[in-house]
Design a binder for these strands. Structure first.
Length: 366
DNA sequence: TTCGATGATTGGTA
DNA sequence: TACCAATCATCGAA
């Protein structure tokens, strides 16, 4: 017999003892015949361990801590922890409210039956055994209801725990800003979308996610991009344009600040021909404007190429290889026939450090 | 409710 | 050990 159940029985018994004194009838033992139910014991133990039953103070903290620890040790552990505790408290409150209701109902019903029996005792003899039997029936009925309550409470706790312990269930889409940062990096390093450890850390910091989440994101992105390049063309153009606009702003600011350039630009007005300085990844140039390594002194030398790049991107009609020759940055040409990211010629043609899968990533420009 | 998108996990590979 | 590929499970829009 559980502690909780016993306490209920005792309280009920207390009232019944009073009645016994009044009526000279004993109903003790009606509940004491029940052997301890192993299932009920399991339920009680679990509820006690989870902090649903038993003392409220600190209840469930161990379970919450376990859930939080299992969630990967991320920074939002405290949120998860409090969330878990809040929900557990909710379950606990419902459990105790229901338990009280059952207890009250049990007492009231017992009183009601006792009154009926008392009335009946005027018209017919009622033996103590009969009273005991009736009370026993009532208590068994309410005990089974209590068992159901405990069972549902345990189920609720299990569901809660599984939700917190199973990382997949916790999946949340990254914020729009985070996705944009990751996409910008991906498309500006499309010839070699393998961020170094430092770059991953930087991205993780910027996106408020973990390094492994960054790794997962790039792993997923590379595969999905490779599988359906066509689908990602629009996105690639979008981010290319976005990067270019950012670059333009930076260039404009740099021009204003430096005041070192000649008033005219050699290629201005010749929208038909783009003089891309590098045959490789043109956004590698942008990179220095977006990343931490950006330095005003570099801008002056790159202004022309940035402007050309910007113009090129803005005029681009959407194709990857139309008229771009070897300059198509986000071109599937970077994928070799075996599904690898780079062909034999690409890496050396790119200005910034590039590596293939498995090699040491030295791209720390961001 | 459906279905595409997406973050996470798992097993295999170099 | 990093990465790929397949898969799972959830999210979120329609």
């Amino acid at each position: 017999m559980s502690i909780r159940k016993r306490s209920i029985c005792i309280s009920t018994r207390g009232k019944l003892e009073t009645r016994k004194n009044l009526e000279g009838l004993s109903i003790r033992g009606a509940q004491e015949e029940d052997p301890p139910d192993p299932q009920l014991m399991r339920l009680d133990n679990m509820l006690l361990a989870e902090g649903v039953s038993g003392p409220e103070k600190g209840g469930g903290s161990a379970a919450a801590a376990a859930a939080a620890a299992a969630s990967g040790g991320s920074s939002d552990n405290s949120i998860e922890h409090s969330d878990y505790r809040a929900k557990l408290t909710q379950i606990r409150q419902i459990y105790h409210t229901e338990l009280e209701k059952y207890e009250q109902a049990c007492n009231e019903f017992t009183t009601h039956v006792m009154n009926l029996l008392r009335e009946q005792s005027r018209t017919r003899p009622i033996s103590p055994k009969e009273i005991e039997r009736m009370v026993g029936i009532i208590h068994r009925k309410f005990s089974s209801i209590q068992m159901q309550l405990k069972q549902s409470t345990c189920e609720a706790v299990m569901i809660l725990r599984s939700r917190f312990l199973d990382a997949r269930r916790k999946r949340r889409n990254f914020s729009k800003q985070a996705t944009e940062i990751l996409n910008e990096y991906f498309y500006s390093h499309l010839s070699n979308p393998y961020p170094s450890e430092e770059a991953k850390e930087e991205l993780a910091k910027k996106c408020s996610i973990t390094v492994s989440q960054v790794s997962n994101w790039f792993g997923n992105k590379r595969i999905r991009y490779k599988k359906n390049i066509g689908k990602f063309q629009e996105e690639a153009n979008l981010y290319a344009a976005k990067t270019a606009v950012t670059a333009a702003h930076a260039v404009a600011a740099a021009v204003q600040n430096n005041q070192t350039n000649s008033p005219t630009t050699p290629n201005s007005g010749s929208s038909g021909s783009f003089n891309l300085p590098n045959s490789g990844d043109m956004f590698m140039n942008m990179q220095s404007l977006n990343g931490d390594s950006y330095q005003g002194s570099q801008v002056g030398a790159n202004v022309q190429s940035q402007v050309d790049t910007l113009r090129h991107v803005i005029n681009q009609t959407g194709g990857y290889s139309d008229g771009l020759g070897g300059n198509s940055l986000y071109s599937p040409h970077n994928l070799n026939a075996n599904g690898g990211w780079q062909d034999a010629t690409t890496p050396s043609s790119v200005t910034s450090p590039t590596e293939g899968p498995g090699s040491v990533h030295s791209d720390t420009s961001n």
